[in-house]
Simulated scan of single mutants.
Amino acid sequence: MIDIQSFLLALGMGNVGFAILMAGYMRGASPSAGLQLWMWARLGIGFSQLVGWARPLLGAPVLGSLEGLGWILAVALEMAAYCVFFGFTRWGRILFPVTGLSCLVVIAASARGASHAQLSAMVACVVALFAAAMAWILLRRRHASLLQRIIGVNDALFALSVAAWASSALQSNVVPDARAAQEAAYLTGYLLMIVNGFGFLLLCKQKDDSRMAHLASVDCLTGLLNRHAFLERAESARVAAQRQRQPLALMMIDIDHFKAINDRWGHASGDDALVVFAQTARQVMRGHETIGRLGGEEFAMMLPAASLEEAVQAAQRLRLAIRAATVITSGPSYTMTVSIGVVVLDPNEGLSDALARADHALYSAKREGRDRVEVGDPMQRCA
């Protein structure tokens, strides 16, 4: 058997310590509403546990109600942290009424003279409900990471143990049974403090790292891959194509008369043209195809496992879609065209050589009148 009072003191101090740790982490990290809510939830849980430790020592019955309300509000904050972190938008419509109703029930029960054991059982039911909801949020996600699943399983175990404790306290008159269930709930609560305390910090760090990686690889104006990221993926695709002995097609794409667009309607209008191009390209390209902005009005696209004929068809489809798109600005609206050079990599050809051939084909399309697709010369004829 464990000493419940000493365990409550350790849990309370541990959760307050986690809240302080999170406050320190947030001073050097990007702002996170989810992490702020989680910090206040840890602080609230720690406060509630410390109140539970102090209640029998001080002999103040009102602390029982304060402990219960603290638990309800703290787990509600923890639930809100999950919802904010995962981008749920309507969580308040359910969470606020459930939290408010639970608090009113505890206050009413305390006013009617409910014992501390009864209040604890009611609060435990609410805590178990919130913990089960948090486990459901984490485990229902199809592409949940291993870390999310570990935290979700931990929440589920905590929900089951707290529900068992509440059930034994409400239905059984056998004190040892209720004591054993209470000890199990506190032990899983300790595991919850360790796993979820560090786990949520790691989740936030993963999210920050993913956002930084996204910013480092995506062109901020068009949302397409930037030059470095595209070339990196194209090189990986080239190696894979040569290993699997499959074709890999490349396109070089340039918006026609882009300088004239900037000169006539201003650079903001030129930015609008780039955005419209990117949106149109995403609409017509296939799921396995990749497009990136190499700089200015120049783009590149790779088509894995595409023959030269299929690549030319894809290029024509893109060219016609761009010609049909309208760039809407604060001034006059206008349309634009693109010129495209297409090649298929030769066996053992380097990426830079293939891009040079596609670029040569692109400038052939420019010389031939623009708004057209040209196929690059075979490798041996490329100077």
Results as ranks from 00 to 15, higher is better:
Met26Ala: 14
Leu146Gln: 12
Leu201Met: 15
Leu50His: 08
Gly223Asn: 02
Asp346Ala: 14
Phe18Arg: 02
Pro31Trp: 07
Ser110Trp: 03
Glu368Asn: 15
Gly199Met: 07
Leu224Asn: 06
Trp265Pro: 04
Phe198Ile: 15
Ala156Phe: 13
Lys366Ala: 02
Leu129His: 02
His143Met: 03
Leu362Ala: 09
Ser339Leu: 10
Met22Thr: 10
Leu191Trp: 06
Val195Phe: 11
Trp40Phe: 15
Leu37Ala: 15
Thr89Ile: 08
Ala249Met: 07
Gly14Cys: 06
Ala216Leu: 09
Val153Ser: 05
Glu298Asn: 09
Gly70Pro: 02
His228Thr: 13
Leu192Ser: 05
Phe47Leu: 07
Ala305Ile: 04
Gly266Pro: 04
Leu202Val: 12
Phe88Arg: 14
Leu43Phe: 14
Leu138Asn: 10
His360Met: 05
Val98Phe: 05
Cys125Val: 09
Val126Gly: 00
Cys204Met: 09
Cys382Trp: 14
Gln242Thr: 04
Gly197Leu: 06
Tyr186Arg: 14
Ser167Thr: 14
Thr99Phe: 01
Ala135Val: 02
Met122Val: 01
Gly68Lys: 01
Gly28Val: 01
Met26Gly: 10
Ala111Val: 03
Ile340Glu: 05
Trp165Ala: 12
Ala169Pro: 06
Leu303Cys: 10
Gly287Tyr: 09
Glu183Tyr: 12
Ala234Phe: 04
Ala109Tyr: 04
Ala281Gly: 07
Ile253Lys: 11
Phe85Asn: 03
Ser307Tyr: 01
Val195Gln: 04
Ala281Val: 11
Ala300Gly: 13
Gly189Thr: 09
Arg149Glu: 08
Arg264Trp: 02
Ala109Thr: 02
Leu160Arg: 01
Thr337Asp: 13
Leu351Gly: 07
Ala356Phe: 09
Asp209Lys: 08
Arg90Leu: 13
Gly331Phe: 07
Met212Ser: 12
Ala131Trp: 00
Arg149Pro: 13
Ala54Lys: 01
Ile45Tyr: 10
Met122Ser: 02
Gly197Tyr: 07
Trp38Met: 12
Ala108Glu: 07
Tyr334Ala: 14
Trp91Lys: 10
Ile94Trp: 15
Ala114Trp: 06
Ala273Gln: 08
Lys207Asp: 12
Cys382Ile: 00
Asn262Ala: 12
Met1Glu: 09
Asp177Phe: 04
Val284Tyr: 12
Ala241Asn: 03
Pro304Glu: 09
Ala54His: 03
Gly59Tyr: 05
Ile340His: 06
Ala314His: 04
Ala54Gly: 05
Ser269Val: 12
Thr329Leu: 05
Asn154Glu: 13
Arg141Glu: 12
Val312Asn: 10
Glu297Phe: 12
Val338Cys: 14
Gly223Thr: 00
Phe158Gln: 15
Met301Ser: 06
Phe258Trp: 09
Cys125Leu: 15
Val373Ala: 05
Leu66His: 04
Leu191Ile: 13
Leu77Asp: 00
Gly12His: 08
Leu224Val: 02
Gly59Lys: 03
Trp91Val: 01
Ile72Trp: 01
Arg367Lys: 12
Glu297Asp: 08
